[in-house]
Write a protein that binds this DNA or RNA. Structure first.
Length: 285
DNA sequence: CACCATGTTCCTTG
DNA sequence: CCAAGGAACATGGT
């Protein structure tokens, strides 16, 4: 499962207390690509001796704040998990994972950023944050602003929801889920949504994301992915157990299975080279 | 072996 | 200038 806003939110809450007040003794970079555009030497130089003071989330990004010595200006480290990224404290005397990209020595503990596909980032560059639209769970994201932004787009609404400049943090999974919840066809052009549909979509986006955060908060998690199933991103103890999070997804990856509302088989379609899942009966118009 | 999945950036096209 | 579409990235799984 690829991390989206809820998964990053859960991770940030988990990491906050673990990193707080820890000092970076040394930064080891095994894949300089994930630092881009920051250079390896600048990254290592800047982080050495810096002390974590906060972690927050913006869209799907993790934003770490650190301070060096007595300097009043905090420095910012921006992380993104891409598709397969993981961040966690390496268990004592565990070997480094095969695709470890960055390891921060915190003195007796090691913080690891691993990423099999290396699409993720851990960088001093903040440019990506400036391109993000409003936080969906904040007051900046309103039904009115959403309506205004959708009016300017001819894209199918499913694709538009993936635009991080429209609203930050929705990915392929929750885009399908929000549209199902709102009862809107993924193929409908953004500008063609009625006022009522925009309001329903706005509400559905917030509910779907909030529920996922709540779901992930109440379940035992495995942040490293070392277990047979990665519990951070499956949110549960595995297939067949009551808390298995994927079972709470209503349409994503459920092609051919009956819709929970009407029993019609869920369909899969491809939009912009990505899978879209929807109920052809509940999501007309 | 060929091909797919997938978020973001970059490049091209309209 | 802006919206939109598609390739590229990297690796493991099918």
């Amino acid at each position: 499962m690829v991390p989206e806003l809820p998964e990053v939110e859960i991770l940030v809450r988990h990491l906050g207390p673990l990193l707080h007040a820890k000092t970076v003794r040394r930064a080891r970079v095994l894949r300089a690509k994930v630092l881009a555009p920051t250079s390896l030497s600048k990254f290592v130089r800047t982080l050495r001796g810096a002390r974590f003071c906060g972690v927050r989330r913006r869209g799907k990004y993790l934003v770490f704040t650190l301070k060096r010595g007595k300097s009043a200006v905090p420095l910012t480290l921006v992380g993104h998990l891409g598709m397969t990224g993981r961040m966690y404290m390496l268990p004592a005397d565990a070997p480094l994972p095969k695709h470890a990209a960055v390891v921060l020595d915190l003195g007796g503990q090691e913080f690891v950023f691993e990423d099999t596909r290396y699409f993720g980032r851990l960088t001093l560059d903040q440019a990506a944050l400036a391109r993000l639209g409003p936080e969906p769970l904040s007051g900046d994201f309103t039904s009115r602003s959403l309506a205004g932004d959708l009016k300017r787009s001819r894209q199918p609404i499913k694709l538009k929801l993936l635009d991080q400049g429209l609203v930050a943090g929705i990915g392929n999974i929750y885009a399908s889920e929000a549209l199902f919840r709102a009862g809107i066809s993924p193929f409908k052009r953004a500008r063609r949504l009625s006022a009522g549909q925009v309001t329903r979509l706005w509400r559905a986006i917030r509910e779907v994301l909030r529920n996922a955060v709540a779901g992930g908060s109440t379940v035992p998690l495995d942040y490293s992915g070392a277990a047979a199933r990665d519990r951070l991103f499956y949110f549960g103890r595995g297939p067949g157990t009551p808390d298995y999070y994927e079972e709470r997804l209503r349409v994503y990856d459920r092609e051919g299975l009956p819709c929970g509302k009407c029993g019609t088989a869920i369909r899969r379609s491809v939009q912009g080279a990505r899978s879209t899942f929807y109920c052809p009966r509940c999501q007309r118009g």
